[in-house]
């Protein structure tokens, strides 16, 4: 075989990378662009089917109707932001569309989501009942320390007191779904430490400082 420099592919790697940078930009990989592009929904109340267009931008509500009422959405938003607040790692869950994703999830026609539906809806109702019992307000109206008194009772499924066991099951499910929603965004990637979805001319493996930290050497030369 000849060496790589002896022959040229139709497109150079640089050209291909530039082409794709342009495509990524035109697709708009920002939440704003995402929200501005609306797909026409023609399969409402069903799923997206086995042959959906994969290169289109979707937002919650495009394929099946959202079902949370305003009060439920306020509660969901408050809990999303209590679990995933704005901090030095990134924005709050509500800033990257997690409450709308939760609405989409709860409203979806698929088995896993339909199984989640009553757990999450009953949990949301429970939060407001509990907030009302303790502070005579809805959950969303509570200040952070007040919300924390409730969250502290239900945030650990195996350590929760028996009277909070069911609410703790809800909390664990909700936290897991909210994390799925948050960390699937570019802001979430930064927060968790995912680096990628960008073209590169080479793949260099873990950097030297990382290899040193784990006391390993790169074995593929």
């Amino acid at each position: 075989m000849t060496s790589p420099s002896d022959f040229t592919p139709l497109f150079s790697r640089r050209q291909v990378i530039q082409m794709f940078a342009a495509v990524s930009a035109s697709l708009g990989i920002t939440p704003e662009a995402n929200a501005a592009t609306v797909g026409v929904a023609d399969t409402f109340a069903k799923g997206y089917g086995t042959d959906p267009t994969l290169t289109k931008l979707y937002k919650p509500g495009d394929v099946w109707p959202l079902t949370l009422n305003a009060e439920q959405l306020r509660t969901v938003t408050a809990l999303c932001d209590l679990i995933l607040p704005a901090d030095d790692l990134g924005p709050a869950a509500s800033a990257v569309g997690v409450p709308q994703f939760m609405d989409e999830w709860i409203s979806a026609p698929y088995p896993l989501q339909q199984e989640d539906n009553p757990v999450l809806l009953e949990g949301i109702a429970w939060l407001n009942t509990e907030a009302s019992k303790r502070f005579s307000k809805s959950f969303a109206e509570l200040d952070a320390p007040q919300q924390a008194t409730i969250a502290d009772d239900i945030c650990h499924i195996t350590m929760a007191k028996p009277e909070f066991r069911e609410a703790a099951q809800f909390f664990e499910r909700f936290r897991s779904r909210a994390a799925a929603g948050y960390y699937s965004t570019q802001e979430g990637w930064k927060a968790i430490g995912f680096v990628g979805n960008i073209t590169s001319a080479t793949f260099d493996g873990p950097p030297a400082e990382v290899l040193k930290l784990l006391d390993v050497e790169q074995t593929v030369k």
Partner: peptide, 15 residues
């Protein structure tokens, strides 16, 4: 290059 936030259900698997 499409991301989870551009897909229904953040790209989760369904039937």
């Amino acid at each position: 290059f499409m991301t989870g936030s551009q897909a229904p259900l953040r790209g989760a698997g369904t039937p």
